[in-house]
Design a protein around this nucleic acid. Structure first.
Length: 595
RNA sequence: GGAGCUGUGGUGUAGAGGCCUAACAUGCCUGCCUGUCACGCAGGAGAUCGCGAGUUCGAAUCUCGUCAGCUCCGCCA
């Protein structure tokens, strides 16, 4: 049934044709998008990656082609030979890019038949993601997915071009490397040749790129896959891609400036989006204080206000006790939300409970006065002070959370975004970049009962804070920076430690013994002794960057073959069991509970 | 590890103890149709309601378990 394309060469892509081609004999190849059989006249919309073009079959002009066209169904692969005609005024289709022309087909070949696809090959389909992922090749045929993949290509091309012009070298680093403590769980690869030993897939090329600086490469970049065995989210996949880079003899301003330029260039070149530089900078402390997040969305206000100082001496015991025990009482003025129902407020109370908040106090501000269950605990001048700090006006709804600072930040930070969504304050056309700088170097992990690096163990402490590394680690600030776009952490980096003694001090602070740091990072420490330049770098999450450019809600829509939340590939059914022979060769015995 | 939402012909949905011999739209198949573009018209096929237990005279519908997908918390240097 299917025919050979022998003797035919494709001359044009579908949507490249225009009125300029009228009169030309063309050869087109692609998929039958839709077939409209009128009995005595057949129209087939031919689709390729550029778009659609209407083919016309007339039995009086080409009988054989017409007979074949009667048999064509959706997604059949066809080759058509014919003349481009201008459509008559009445038959122009303004919805189609090629709507002013059509091809009168003289010869049709059915190159391959197709089963009826399980969903429509068109934009904005509403299908279970299950099915899209199982038939990913069909999903990727859809115009919006093709757009995303093309955008991804444009972004990497623009970034490569930019970095090349700035003197960066693209250098590959190993995928089979050494497992490191700290950070995410590693994906392990068993070594057949070395029984009982394992490689780890890189969480990032961090150490290699630093060693490339030791090696005098000066400016490195790589568009590189990274692997982290942690639970998935809409913006997190176990394998993801970074635009990773590192430079020698630079400071924070050098790299931030260059990255602003690169971001503006790629957004402009790849997506036509104008980005204003320089980006504003917020310290970590400021971001947490004002937005309750280290990745604040700056497209809307609803900033957090602090009331800890004033409630500590109030009669409201719940607030006062929290303030007295080192906690915080903060709030958000939900502008214009005074009309929220009791149910809506209850729902929001449940919402903040997800983040550990034990309650959500509120005051409704109306023309007639205030309504609130907590009002009775406060004196008149206290209430006035609160309203002043909130800049409250009739129509506003004031929310309070009292708890330990991390809980207050998480709860109100999330509430802030939830309110903005509810009130439609978030513009899809705005791209608000911000640098978050001056992160703490380490934080105390209550579960592991030790200090852990906030960025990673190679991040340099601020010079003026080095003296506190042993005495007050929580006070040491890092020379780290995150680039944040619309509430999404787009990338992060730091100026690195380039001296062996400081690096050792850092490992020590993280609770690593001398033996352990020698075993895990000895080669790096040794390299640092052979003339290491001051250096620093940054890595962009490419998937997230494209997700935002494409205005999608998940990176799965910009990754050709993503995994589900349970880290499975529904198309190829990975992961799957290994054969006994494979396991034997790898010296692995399984210890799996059978269900 | 935990919380929530979803699962009914190929696809998207309706049905919420008996009205179900499961409805609608679309897709699919057959026939008709020379200007459609989500073509139209007529006819037809297609589902043991994710899976397994239980409650009940009776379960798509209620309960429990389980599987899958999604969102989130934890986790993610």
């Amino acid at each position: 049934m299917s025919e050979s394309m022998h003797g035919l060469k494709r001359t044009h892509l579908a949507a490249e044709l225009s009125t300029a081609n009228v009169g030309e004999n063309v050869v087109l190849m692609g998929w039958a998008n839709t077939c409209r059989d009128h009995g005595g006249l057949i129209f087939i919309d031919l689709r390729d990656r550029t778009g659609l073009i209407q083919l016309v079959f007339n039995p009086e002009v080409a009988g054989e082609a017409f007979a074949k066209a009667e048999k064509v169904r959706g997604e059949f692969v066809v080759a058509a030979v014919g003349i481009v005609h201008k459509r008559s005024e009445a038959t122009i289709n303004p919805k189609l890019k090629t709507g002013e022309i059509e091809v009168y087909v003289s010869e049709l070949r059915i190159l391959n038949r197709a089963k009826t696809p399980p969903f429509y090959i068109e934009e904005d389909i509403d299908v279970d993601e299950n099915i899209r992922l199982k038939y990913r090749y069909l999903d990727l045929r859809r115009p919006d997915m093709q757009k995303n993949i093309i955008l991804r290509h444009k972004v990497t091309m623009a970034a490569r071009d930019f970095l090349d012009k700035k003197g960066f070298l693209e250098i590959e680093t190993p995928m089979m490397t050494k497992s490191t403590p700290e950070g995410a769980r590693d994906y392990l690869v068993p070594s057949r040749v070395n029984p009982g030993k394992f490689y780890a897939l890189p969480q990032s090329p961090q150490i290699f790129k630093q060693i490339l600086m030791v090696a005098g490469m000066d400016k490195y970049f790589q568009i590189v896959r990274c692997f982290r065995d942690e639970d998935l989210r809409a913006d997190r996949q176990p394998e993801f891609t970074q635009i990773d880079l590192e430079m020698s003899f630079i400071d924070e301003d050098d790299i931030l400036g260059l990255m602003e330029e690169m971001t503006a260039t790629t957004f402009k070149d790849a997506a036509g989006i104008n980005v204003e530089t320089p980006f504003p900078r917020l310290t970590y402390q400021e971001a947490m204080d004002r937005y309750g997040s280290d990745k604040p969305d700056l497209r809307f206000g609803l900033e957090l206000k602090d009331f800890t100082d004033m409630v500590s001496k109030s009669d409201f015991k719940v607030f006062a006790a929290v303030a007295a025990s080192g906690g915080q009482v903060k709030g958000i003025n939900a502008k214009g939300c005074a009309d929220f129902s009791r149910k809506e407020i209850d729902d929001l109370t449940q919402f903040v409970a997800i983040y550990g908040a034990k309650g959500l106090a509120y005051i409704v501000v109306t023309e007639e006065g205030l309504k609130s269950p907590i009002l009775k605990f406060f004196k008149e001048e206290e209430i006035k002070e609160m309203l002043d700090r909130f800049e409250a006006q009739p129509g506003d709804l004031l929310f309070f959370v009292a708890d330990k600072p991390p809980v207050v930040a998480a709860a109100l930070g999330a509430l802030r975004i939830e309110l903005a969504k509810k009130k439609n304050l978030i513009s899809l056309d705005e791209f608000r970049f911000v640098w978050v700088v001056d992160f703490p170097l380490v934080e105390y992990d209550e579960v592991e009962r030790r200090w852990t690096a906030i960025h990673h163990p190679f991040t340099a402490p601020k010079e003026e804070d080095v003296e506190f590394m042993e005495t007050e680690p929580g006070r040491v600030r890092a020379r780290a920076y995150d680039i944040v776009l619309n509430g999404v952490e787009l990338g992060g980096g730091s100026i690195r430690i380039h001296r062996r003694d400081i690096q050792e001090k850092m490992f020590q602070l993280l609770g690593m013994s001398r033996e352990e740091s020698q075993e895990k990072f000895g080669y790096m420490l040794e390299a640092f002794e052979y003339g290491t330049p001051p250096h620093g770098g940054l890595a962009f999450g490419l998937d997230r960057m494209i997700m935002l450019m494409a205005k999608k809600d998940t990176i799965r829509d910009v990754i050709p073959f993503p995994k589900t939340q349970s880290a499975a590939d529904l198309m190829c059914q990975a992961p799957s069991e290994a054969t006994p022979k494979q396991l034997q060769e790898l010296h692995i015995r399984l210890n799996v509970k059978t269900k």
